Computed example of a mutant assay.
Amino acid sequence: MEYMSARDAARKWNVSARLIQRYCAEGRIKGARKSGTVWEIPSDAARPKDPRKKEEAVETIYRNPSFPNLMPLMNTAFLPGHCLEFIHGMKNGPRKDIAFAEYHYFSGHPKEASQEAEGYLTCRDAEVRLSACLIYAYSNLSLGNIQRARYALEEIKKTLKADTERSSHARSIEGFISAAAAVLLHLPLPEELPDAKEFMPSLPLGLRAFALYVQAHYLYLQKKYEHSIGIIESALTMGAEQYPIPAIYLHLAAVMDHMSLKQADRAEEHLLAAWRLARPDDLIEGFGEHHGLLGGMLEAVIKQKWPEDFKRIIAITYEFSSGWRKIHNQETGHDVADDLTTTEFAAAMLAARNWTNPEIAEHMNISVNTVKHHISQAMKKLNVGNRKDLKKIYA
């Protein structure tokens, strides 16, 4: 009998290698056997059926009655390629409207997301209101409407502060929303933010998975890359990959960590895993948001195989990063440069992480001279004279 590797099976069935390994460990692939530390799978094995059917996905959103309206799409284990089908099947009302706003944001349509969220910014239901504010804030960053984004962030603070009961439920929501709003903008965390150990267990699985991404991202910013990877690996192993939106972000955070550790092969595995989850439903926003932190991986992989998608991701990158800088710079007092091209930024990031020019050239599929040019331009725009100073900015 002929066998294939978990990676080969993942490509064949359009899922992640991690999910294949999980199927094998659970005995869901007939004839799969372990040889040392790797799984061998019969080449004619059938792909296991995925239990996440539409009716079960609907149940997912109601399975946690304590959080029925908080980022409902993020908290749903829909099958890749069936995102819109799931939303259309929801009961009409605020939950469905918020789910559509989520979809439009995560698929790179901030105008539609903003319009759908705007009507719920003062909703009496706190979960709906907080979800709408979070979507509205990030959508308006991409649209360049910074005052509207600030308004939404302030509404989040006011809503959380207004809850005087400080119940466990309220603290969980506060921890999730506050961390997501601050960490992803690279802003200081609120002083009274609940400890993750306090609020994380109370969150339903989908929101918990995204909260773990936020925690991993925070550790990345502190340069604790191995710790960040550990959280991501644990989250994915424990089932986070069933929730496409959190899983996409977890994989992208892993790319950031592995590229910082010069582990390009591992980074590519996670990038492709994120892409397999995202592309069927066009959930490409996260790739644009993270572009500058992915160490040229989009140029090395996505640009070569999916050039049109890459162009759209770069458009998202410029729109989001422009708004992000306006809030980040003013809140932190930093002066993050706003005139680097995405290629200059990627090359500068790699240089700051001790990649040599030949290594960067091979990784990004460009010449060494082109690498030198991009790094020289980046340093000129950043007003730094050498790589040591560059490292102070990006390392």
Rank of each mutant, 00 (worst) to 15 (best):
1 M>R: 10
6 A>P: 01
8 D>Y: 01
8 D>A: 12
10 A>R: 06
11 R>D: 13
11 R>Q: 09
13 W>P: 11
14 N>K: 15
15 V>K: 00
22 R>P: 02
22 R>F: 05
22 R>T: 15
23 Y>P: 08
23 Y>G: 06
23 Y>I: 10
24 C>Y: 00
28 R>E: 13
30 K>C: 04
38 V>I: 12
41 I>V: 05
41 I>T: 00
44 D>F: 07
46 A>P: 03
46 A>I: 02
47 R>K: 15
48 P>E: 12
58 V>N: 02
59 E>C: 03
60 T>S: 06
65 P>R: 01
66 S>T: 06
72 P>S: 13
73 L>K: 06
77 A>E: 05
88 H>V: 11
90 M>E: 12
91 K>W: 02
91 K>I: 10
92 N>S: 15
105 Y>F: 13
106 F>N: 11
109 H>T: 09
113 A>M: 09
118 E>G: 09
119 G>L: 11
122 T>W: 02
134 L>A: 12
135 I>F: 09
136 Y>Q: 01
138 Y>A: 05
140 N>A: 07
140 N>F: 07
143 L>G: 12
144 G>H: 09
145 N>V: 02
148 R>P: 04
151 Y>T: 10
156 I>G: 07
165 E>K: 12
171 R>K: 14
172 S>V: 05
176 F>Q: 05
190 P>G: 06
192 E>R: 06
197 K>S: 15
197 K>M: 12
199 F>I: 05
199 F>C: 02
205 L>V: 11
211 A>V: 02
214 V>T: 15
214 V>P: 01
218 Y>R: 03
220 Y>L: 13
229 I>R: 13
232 I>Q: 02
233 E>L: 10
235 A>Y: 08
236 L>R: 11
240 A>Y: 04
240 A>G: 07
245 I>L: 14
247 A>V: 10
250 L>P: 01
251 H>N: 15
256 M>N: 13
258 H>D: 10
259 M>L: 14
260 S>H: 11
262 K>N: 14
262 K>A: 15
263 Q>T: 07
263 Q>M: 10
266 R>A: 12
266 R>P: 03
269 E>W: 02
273 A>D: 08
273 A>M: 05
277 L>W: 02
279 R>N: 08
279 R>W: 00
280 P>H: 07
282 D>G: 09
282 D>E: 10
288 G>K: 00
292 G>C: 00
293 L>C: 05
294 L>I: 03
294 L>D: 01
296 G>H: 02
298 L>F: 05
299 E>H: 13
302 I>L: 11
302 I>D: 09
310 F>P: 01
312 R>L: 06
313 I>H: 03
322 S>G: 07
328 H>N: 14
332 T>P: 08
336 V>G: 00
341 T>A: 03
343 T>I: 11
345 F>S: 12
350 L>D: 08
350 L>Q: 00
351 A>W: 03
352 A>V: 06
355 W>M: 13
358 P>G: 14
359 E>S: 12
369 N>Y: 01
370 T>A: 15
374 H>T: 08
376 S>D: 13
377 Q>M: 12
377 Q>N: 13
379 M>T: 07
380 K>D: 12
380 K>G: 07
386 N>D: 15
388 K>N: 13
389 D>N: 10
389 D>S: 09
390 L>D: 08
391 K>V: 06
394 Y>P: 06
